[in-house]
């Protein structure tokens, strides 16, 4: 049975799309079906051809009605395509649009959906997803009982799909009837540059404390942040010293944040500070003092003067990102 992967053309063939393709390829191999990629949204030839290099077929839905994302119309288009393709599984990334559409698509296809998958498996022909539950305190394996399985994945957790040796896949453009009158209509869109998001929503945070000794080091932290798409925050001691705006304060009386990664630089880790980051998935720290309480909460850390670490770290991260 075939596997369908869904990509939105406006986000290009990014790391997420690559991860979805990788997961799709593995699943297709296990189930002995084809990997068929759906690219939906305004025409994106580059993306189509990149997918053609990894998938067995590329289905492009770039009709005029799909020039901009509209939930009801996109859902209609995907339902129609999936019905025709009758796949065993439909895979999405975990962006806003995917999360919005996947459960509804599953319902329309009489399938089952599950989200935020970090691992996929097939057991006795049934598709199973592993995902974290209870705010990351536990991991569950979920078996989908209906077909198709509509899944959205923590796409970056999956290895990208390898390019095929054989010829690139055919690109098809099935005609979909989208002449519906959509009851909802997105009328305005605004994207904010990276780093502008609210601290509460940041995926990665680099936070500075009193140990920085002044406002200047925050500029260096900013450089590091730029490299990994992080946002800056601070302990109250740093905010109080006037080295950074008070809105950066994280903690009991500051912001409560829940990033995937929180890097604490020269922060001791007082309870009042930790109260703000209890929902962080991974905490890392740079501190000169190996006994600093922050390390008790860290997944990894480095005991060193931050002044020696930051310049090197900038270099290393820049190199690794390339």
């Amino acid at each position: 049975m075939d596997i369908l992967i869904i990509s939105f053309s406006n986000s290009d063939y990014d790391r997420a799309a690559q991860g979805v393709a990788g997961a799709g390829r593995n699943l297709a191999t296990v189930l002995g079906g084809r990997l068929r990629a759906v690219v939906i949204g305004p025409g994106n030839a580059a993306m189509n051809s990149r997918l053609a290099a990894v998938a067995d077929e590329v289905i492009v839905a770039d009709q005029a009605e799909l020039a901009e994302y509209q939930p009801e119309i996109f859902l209609q288009a995907l339902t129609s395509i999936c019905r025709d393709a009758a796949p065993a599984a439909v895979l999405f990334g975990n962006d806003t649009y995917s999360q919005e559409l996947a459960p509804r698509l599953a319902h329309r296809l009489s399938g089952s959906a599950a989200g935020d998958g970090i691992e996929l498996a097939v057991d006795n022909g049934a598709i199973r997803v592993r995902r974290s539950v209870y705010g990351g305190k536990a991991v569950a394996t979920i078996e989908l009982k209906r077909s198709p399985a509509v899944l959205w994945l923590r796409a970056r957790a999956f290895e990208p799909a390898p390019e095929k040796d054989s010829a690139t896949a055919a690109i098809t453009r099935p005609a979909v009837d989208l002449s519906m009158r959509a009851p909802t209509q997105i009328i305005e869109r605004k994207s904010e540059g990276a780093g502008e998001a609210r601290l509460e929503d940041a995926r990665v945070i680099i936070s500075g404390g009193r140990g920085l000794g002044g406002p200047e080091p925050f500029a260096d932290l900013q450089d590091v942040a730029g490299l990994i798409g992080a946002q800056l925050a601070a302990s109250r001691a740093a905010c109080d010293s006037g080295w950074c705006p008070p809105s950066w304060q994280v903690g009991q009386t500051g912001k409560k944040v829940a990033p995937g990664l929180y890097i604490a630089v020269a922060i001791r880790g007082a309870s009042q500070h930790m109260a703000g980051i209890s929902d962080a998935r991974v905490i890392a720290a740079i501190n000169i003092d190996a006994d600093a309480p922050i390390f008790k909460h860290c997944r990894f850390g480095i005991v060193e003067d931050y002044k020696n670490v930051i310049p090197l770290l900038k270099e290393k991260l820049a190199a690794l990102q390339r």
Partner: peptide, 20 residues
């Protein structure tokens, strides 16, 4: 060396951020 340690540190950062 410090270089090696920071390198390790950077690698772990990338590892985590990529999985987000």
């Amino acid at each position: 060396s410090l270089d090696e340690r920071v390198d390790q540190f950077a690698k772990r950062i990338i590892e985590v951020t990529q999985a987000l």
